[in-house]
């Protein structure tokens, strides 16, 4: 295995620099925490950036109510161990208040609904910077993101009119009501994130490792048949397989992959040899060719 870590070191230095710029340039930053590997990596970077002081901003989780129980458990333990502040806002509340309508049918997901809850929370707390774990290698619209990405009063992304971003100078000047989405790990690939998790020995939720799970097959993808969150037709047969998850978004849009990678080093090996992209197992991107861009325009992470 390649133990040369110089490229991961330079990515880490860049991310720490970005974290510090956020703390210095904004009054009320927040780190958007999903419980996934990318946001866990962000937390690690934030802790390193401000040591020995504590992280000068809270974490916020927009809970769809459809999370893997393992990630919620993990989240609560993480913030407790690190002494971080956690804010949780629930999509269920937005549904109950009639602000959004639950989708129905086979492909029902709460992933889209998150945006409303997120924008409301930004307004409620007057956050002016939201740090997210999106990476440019994930998806073709994300490849176009700046590191500091300005959103208007409606949280929208004006993709055809982004600020130039030169050298490593980050311009965080905004008007009242606007906010900036910040992506410290923009230049990381999926493999970089896993290599970093391995190198730093970072703990991650168990669903990222191969485990036995009751699943069913649809559209060539493997869906969890546990917890009853993903809609399943009666004729869709439940099987037991060794699987793991490559991303842990909302359960209703995250498919599993067959795997026997039970340790970080096995996962790193598996990713290195993988011939399908990470978001290949995300049904939310498959809704249409430009699904991600449309969601981003509306204020999605």
């Amino acid at each position: 295995m390649n133990k040369d870590t110089s490229s991961i070191n330079s990515l880490e230095n860049e991310a720490i620099y970005i974290m510090r710029e956020v703390a210095a340039q904004f009054e009320k930053p927040v780190l958007l925490f999903s419980g996934g590997k990318d946001s866990i990596t962000l937390v690690r970077l934030a802790v390193k950036a401000f040591y020995p002081a504590k992280v000068p901003f809270p974490l916020m989780h927009i809970d769809t109510g459809h999370n893997f129980p393992e990630t919620i458990e993990f989240r609560d333990r993480l913030v407790k161990e690190l002494g971080l502040e956690l804010i949780v806002r629930n999509v269920q509340d937005s549904i109950d208040e009639g602000k959004v309508k639950e989708e129905s049918g086979r492909y029902a997901s709460r992933n889209m609904l998150q945006t409303t809850t997120l924008l409301d929370a930004i307004e409620e707390f007057k956050f002016d910077a939201c740090i997210g774990g999106a990476r440019r290698d994930e998806e073709k619209a994300r490849a176009k993101e700046r590191i500091f990405s300005v959103r208007d009063d409606f949280g929208q992304w004006d993709e055809k009119n982004q600020r130039p971003e030169l050298f490593d100078m980050l311009n965080g000047d905004i008007e009242h009501g606007q906010n900036v989405r910040v992506f410290p790990i923009s230049n990381w690939t999926e493999l970089d994130v896993w290599s970093y998790i391995e190198k730093e020995n970072i703990e991650i939720p168990s669903i990222y490792f191969a485990h036995k799970r009751k699943v069913f097959l649809r559209d060539g993808m493997i869906w969890s048949a546990e917890d009853g969150i993903v809609y399943r037709d009666d004729n869709e047969e439940v099987l037991e397989k060794m699987v793991r998850f490559r991303t842990v978004g909302d359960m209703s849009c995250t498919a599993a992959v067959l795997s026997d990678a039970v340790s970080i080093s096995k996962v790193v090996e598996e990713i290195r040899d993988s011939t399908i992209s990470e978001r290949g197992a995300r049904i939310d991107d498959k809704r249409s060719e430009a699904a991600m861009e449309k969601r981003k325009q509306q204020g999605y992470f």
Binding site: D137, K140, A141, E159, K160, E293
Partner: peptide, 22 residues
């Protein structure tokens, strides 16, 4: 099409903003 990821770019067949490719 591997790098022109925005809808407007794909429709017009031109690049509008930088894409970072790894």
């Amino acid at each position: 099409l591997a790098t022109d990821g925005l809808m407007a770019e794909r429709e017009q067949g031109i690049t509008i903003d930088v894409a970072h490719i790894y």
